[in-house]
Amino acid sequence: MNPKALWSLYLPKWGATMQVAWSNLLVYRLNFLLSAIAPLVVFLVVKLSLWYRVYEGAPSALVGGFTFSQMATYHLWVFLTSLLVFNGNATKISEDIRMGKITSYLIYPFSLWEFHGATFLARTLVQLGIAATTLTGVWAFLSGQVHFPEPHTLALGLLLTLMAAGFWFWANYLVGLIGFWMEETWTLMVMLQILAYFLSGSLIPLSFYPPWLQGLLNYTPFPAIAYLPARVLMGESAGVIQALWVLGFWNLGAALLAQLVWKKGLRLYTAAGM
């Protein structure tokens, strides 16, 4: 099948699934508003005030090579990239497997990964809107204190983030599929989440870490979740090309592994409760 035919075959299905995901998001209005606002509140109340205490009222002092203003900018970008990346739903996937709720997607001519992929994409796009609104608000509020990147830098940062989001989707999906073997996967998910926070530079910039660990992390997709896009958006693009290759490799590897795990796991599926 040629790419045009594939596009016209799959686009309506993905589009319709995304529309349903958006409709579901908007059903409970308060829930939606809270989920949109909560990360910003956490960012302002926890992260910024914490780092302010670290600098102890001396904003021009250097901590790990960052002034307070640079550190705040770094964490603003990290906050925005994490909005785009961390949209997975692994515990829901494994619960659906355990409770036999994936049955419908074994009957429909639309795969479970496609359904979750489209839902993930829908959520990422919503988060993109929230991130853009937050960024505009912060930029207007700080009136020039945050340096706004050039369009091509912004595009590069966004590309890195979206590829990292792709990896995070597959990682989440894989953990969810472990539900074929394990009754509960939330501990695995929490472990992966904590690992990602530490190794991506979400908590502290990776430049705080020993050089050997930084070198090792360059071959993993984690820095692309937070550290690399934040640095790119702050004007430093060293190592981006390698990161794109690394991300491409991990995305492909995780996608192939997910298909393999799906095939193996499905043989164990019992469609409980039917």
């Binding site: 319709a16 699934t17 349903v20 409709s23 036999g100 639309f110 039917m274």
Partner: peptide
């Protein structure tokens, strides 16, 4: 093929059935 499960719903719980039908229209082309 199609499967009707008396003990399991295949419709989206929080949405009108028409939304599910429109989704199925795309899935089944």
């Amino acid at each position: 093929i199609a499967l009707v499960m008396g003990q399991k719903s295949q419709l989206w719980w929080d949405l009108p059935a028409l939304d599910s039908f429109l989704l199925l229209q795309k899935y089944y082309e």
